Amino acid sequence: MKKVAIIDDESAGRKLIREYLEDFPDMIIVAEANNGVDAVREINKFKPDLVFMDIQMPGMTGFEVLTRLEELPQIIFSTAYDKYALQAFEVHAIDYLLKPYTKERFKMALSRIPNSDGNSGLAPLTNSLLMDTTDYPERILVQFQKKLVTVAVSDIVWIEAYGDYSKIHAGEEVFVSNYGISILEEKMDPKIFLRVHRSAIINLDQIKSADKYGKGYQLLMKNQEKVMVSRGYKDKLQQFIF
Rank of each mutant, 00 (worst) to 15 (best):
M1G: 05
K3E: 05
K3P: 12
V4Q: 04
A5F: 08
I7H: 04
D8E: 09
R18A: 10
Y20G: 07
D23G: 02
P25V: 03
P25N: 02
M27Q: 02
A33P: 12
D38K: 14
K47P: 00
K47A: 06
L50F: 10
M53R: 01
G59E: 04
M60T: 05
L66A: 00
R68K: 14
L69F: 11
E70I: 13
I75F: 12
F77V: 00
S78W: 00
A80L: 02
A80W: 09
Y81I: 00
A85Y: 01
E90A: 15
L97Q: 05
P100S: 02
P100I: 06
Y101I: 04
L110R: 01
S111H: 14
I113D: 11
N119W: 11
N119A: 11
L122V: 02
P124W: 12
T126S: 11
T126Y: 09
N127R: 12
L130S: 05
D135M: 13
D135S: 08
Y136K: 05
Y136A: 08
Y136V: 06
P137R: 02
L148G: 06
A152H: 09
S154V: 14
W158Y: 10
I159E: 04
A161F: 14
A170H: 07
A170K: 04
V174G: 01
N178R: 08
I183F: 09
E185L: 12
M188N: 03
I192Y: 12
R198P: 14
S199W: 15
I201L: 14
D205K: 11
I207S: 04
Y213A: 12
Y213C: 08
Y213S: 11
V229K: 07
G232W: 05
D235W: 02
L237W: 11
F240P: 03
